[in-house]
Each structure stands twice: as C-alpha cells, then as structure tokens.
Amino acid sequence: IRPFSTATTYAVTLICTDFDCPDLSNNIGNACDDGDSNTVNDEIDANCDCIGIPMATNDEACIATELVCGVPIVQTTAGASQSLPPITCENFTAAQAFDVWFTFTADGTSSYIINDIATSDLVLEAFSSDGCGDLTSIDCADIPETIDFGVLAAGVYYVRAYAYSNFAPPYDINIQLDCVNNNAATLNGTVNWNSSCGDRPATVGFYTPGTATLVATYNTTIAANGTFSIADVATGTFDVIVKVQGYLAKGIQDVVIAAGDNSLAVGAIKNGNINNDGAVNIFDVSLINAAFNTSVGNPAYNPLADLNCDGNINIFDISILNASFNQSGATAPLN
C-alpha cells in the first residue's frame, strides 16, 4: 500500500473465505472439468462433485430415448445434428433444428402430456409413426414447451426437441412424460372386526377365478372402523383373498373390478392367527400362553395375542382363540 503522505496511518484487514469445496479449490455452481469428453456444461454440484450433462446420443428418431411415465430425462443438445428441417410452430420458425429424439408407446386409453421443465427456449414436435422411418407430425409447442395429447390411439409416438435460436449452442433439456390412466380402478373395502384393535396391516390378493394363479398382491391398512382403500388395482374378474394381520384370511369369489370406484364387503373375519401362518393351532396357543397375564407396557405383552384388544391378555383372549382353533384361512384356489 502506498500512502498519500508520510503522516498517514492505514489499518488493513485481510478477510479469507474458505471454498465451498476445499478439496476442489472451487465453489458450488462454478465451472469445472469432470474429465469426461462425453459431457458438457460441467459444474460443481451441491455434493462438491464435478458433474457434466451427457452429450446427445439420441439425435435420430431410430435411436430415440425411451420415455417412462413420470421419470424426467436430463440431457443436452450438444453433439446433435439436424435430422429434419425446423417447422413453423406458434408462428415462429427456428433458423435450424439440431434435434434430439424421444419415444413412448401409448396404450389407447391413457392420456399423455410431455413438457420440458428446463429454462431453455425449445421447440417440441410430436409424431405418430409406422416405425421410426415413417413419421407424421401431429403437434408442436414453443412457449410453453408443453404438448397435452389427451387420449392417444394405441401406438408408438416420437417427440423431437431442438433450440429456438439463430445459433447452435448446447441447450440443457429436462423432458418428462406424464401419463394418466383413464381406466384406473380403486378398491374400497370393509371388514367386520373389533374396532378397538386400531389400524392393522393387510394384504389383498387377486387370483384368476378358480385357480391358484396370482394376478396381483396389494398391501394396505385396515382402519379401526374396518375400511380400506387401494388405488390403481387391476381390472377384470378375480377371486380375492384378504389377509389382515392376526386374523385368518377371507376369500370372496368372482369379484368384478371395473374402472373407477369398486366396493367390496369382506364380512366378518376370524381372530386368533397370532403367528400369521394361515391357521389357528397349537403354535398360536403357545404364543398366547407366553404372553398370558401381561398388559400393555409389559415387555412380554404381544398385541397380536390380545385378541379382544383391551390391553390385557387373559382368559377372554383364550376364549376367542378357542372359537377359531383348528381352523384355517382361505387359500387359492377358492372352492
């Protein structure tokens, strides 16, 4: 420091600030080099890792990236070539179309929405197809970069994305396909049981009628009032087996499940299957004996052996178990 005069006194303070990422001698958000020639726009992330965005490997329809419902795909247009000329979309036409491609398969009943949630100014163009070499343009979007297809006919569809710009910089893309199953079914059920037992986990199995072929299994919770609800269940006709923890399984034959809300009255279920092996037998007697004369708070208390759910394991619980003794729960195939 050079003073203005020999009579001037200065106080100097040196402030040192640590790097966000001392091991890298760098800060979060700064540019870096991840050492991978197949990535671009490398920068330090919140975990102090140098991360780049993969270069495009899907710059033709026939090597399009498969979209999965609800799963975003982050990539860049770096390395992409122009496979088709730019289109006029919403009264604007880009100077070029260095495009990347995505594909998905519609089931004929679901609704689909595709959008880019990055900040780049992109053009999206959608195509129906008879194969990746036979494309028909069906829709496009510029601002906002969202195409709401509604219900699409069953088939394979393609979407290309490219930057709306007079230049050809690498643009970051964050593409996501959202799908709505218009045939979604919900199963709303009830069981008759002791509401004092509170909530209990349960499984619900769907079987091909008259067989032991399991179609689907769903985990749910039986509320204290005996109700349960399961979303997005399979549709069709099934034999249904409901197994509540501590109770014998109950089966209902030929249950029709259609799109929308479906009701299932399971009816009364039998208590006493303490070890959940599907039968009330000597093993359950052994468990109730081990916890006999205990109450809530006692280390030996077993809530599944408290069959009347009064907080105590006593002669009343043994009486309930005796009523179900030597009985087994429903199994497939149902007779």
Rank of each mutant, 00 (worst) to 15 (best):
D59E: 13
G297R: 06
P170S: 10
T93M: 07
A332V: 02
T39E: 08
G29V: 08
F4Y: 10
G198S: 05
N183L: 12
T88M: 09
G311D: 04
D317V: 01
A212C: 03
Q253V: 05
L124I: 05
D134R: 09
D239N: 00
T6Y: 07
P333T: 01
N166H: 08
G133E: 11
V12K: 10
T13L: 08
T9H: 01
D42S: 14
C89E: 06
G329K: 03
A305D: 09
V180K: 11
V159I: 10
D254K: 02
D306S: 05
Y207Q: 02
G133T: 13
N275M: 07
Y247W: 03
T9P: 00
V280F: 03
N273I: 02
P54K: 07
N183S: 12
P3E: 09
N91L: 13
Y164W: 13
L67V: 08
A46V: 13
C197I: 10
E43C: 11
D199E: 13
N30F: 10
A231M: 12
D134A: 13
V240S: 07
A78D: 15
D116W: 02
C62H: 08
V123I: 15
I114E: 03
V285S: 12
S83C: 06
A323V: 09
A249T: 06
A202K: 05
V204Y: 02
T227Q: 14
N219E: 13
I44Y: 04
A95M: 07
I222F: 02
Q96K: 12
S295V: 14
N225Y: 05
P299I: 06
I51P: 08
T220Y: 04
T8P: 04
A80V: 12
V100P: 05
V266K: 02
G205K: 12
A56R: 11
D116T: 02
N293D: 15
N174Q: 15
N182G: 05
A141K: 01
A97P: 04
N225W: 06
I53M: 12
A141L: 00
L264F: 11
N262E: 01
N166I: 10
V244W: 00
D20Y: 06
C69V: 12
P3W: 05
G260T: 00
P86C: 00
V71E: 10
I117S: 15
V40H: 08
L287Y: 06
D34Y: 08
D232L: 08
D284P: 07
I315Q: 11
A290I: 10
D261N: 02
Y207D: 01
N314K: 11
Q245E: 15
D277N: 14
A161F: 02
W101C: 00
G278K: 03
D121P: 09
V215A: 04
Y164T: 09
V40D: 13
Q75W: 08
I28L: 09
I222N: 01
G246D: 03
N26E: 13
D148Q: 15
V191H: 00
N281A: 10
Y171W: 12
Y218V: 02
R160A: 02
A97G: 03
I138V: 14
A185M: 01
L334E: 01
A163R: 10
D232G: 05
V191C: 00
